[in-house]
Design a protein around this nucleic acid. Structure first.
Lengths: 114, 114
DNA sequence: CTGCTCCCCTTGACATTCGATGTATAGAGG
DNA sequence: CCTCTATACATCGAATGTCAAGGGGAGCAG
């Protein structure tokens, strides 16, 4: 059982997807499975989040797509990072790290407001 | 000038506020300043986020308020955690930790999708 | 030819953050 | 006194992004 899935924090999905695509072309479905497998289902990407995200990234020119045939012999849209996307991945990774550090400072502090 | 403030990820503000109030009663304004000071302005809480958050937490009965006089001799609403709030803080902290770990697995992996 | 998995997609509801804006009072400085 | 600044409360609309719930088509195994 123990199928406790965490909700994604808004904004982190883009980072996750960019990271997944940093290894080379992949289609949406496989990206979602990859994230679930890696995190042992701690993170789940619903399709209603997945495809809008993909389209968003493409519109911002961080990724590009082309139709190909998947490993399972089905039509699938393969996405790959653009150079803009690579820069964005770097920026968002740094941003995430800073954010986690800032949160950490607050959560571990023992000084009170006032 | 390096005044680069990070946007808050949706959902993390509640956790921040609960943590701030875990030290005892405080008013909204001082909580916001506390967070900014602790994180060296990496995190900034706008008033348009602060007050809705406070009202939200109060409605969920995680905090309670009463009017008092502030350190600066002004009327201010002091908030303190309820026991429900304390439980919530614990739960959200655990949740945050899990989330960061899951993200970390993805960001540091070197296995590709597919 | 049935059912299953893969793979694409859209829509509407919902929650939250942010920038702008508005009120009022205490204390400082002229 | 009078004005200015910092404190302290609040609300509003716009923007964003996630999710649940829908829909469709095509390969493959039985």
């Amino acid at each position: 059982m123990a199928k406790s899935t965490l909700d994604l924090l808004q904004g982190t999905l883009d980072l996750l997807m960019l990271k997944a695509l940093s290894w080379g072309p992949a289609h949406g479905y496989s990206v979602a499975r990859w994230i679930e497998r890696l995190t042992a289902d701690a993170l789940t990407i619903g399709e209603g989040s997945l495809y809008p995200a993909l389209h968003r990234l493409e519109e911002r020119e961080w990724i590009e797509s082309e139709w190909r045939i998947s490993e399972n012999n089905r039509k699938a849209k393969f996405y790959h990072l653009t150079s803009k996307g690579r820069a964005q991945l770097k920026a968002e990774t740094a941003n995430w790290t800073s954010f986690v550090e800032a949160m950490s400072k607050v959560l571990r502090s023992n000084e009170q407001p006032g």
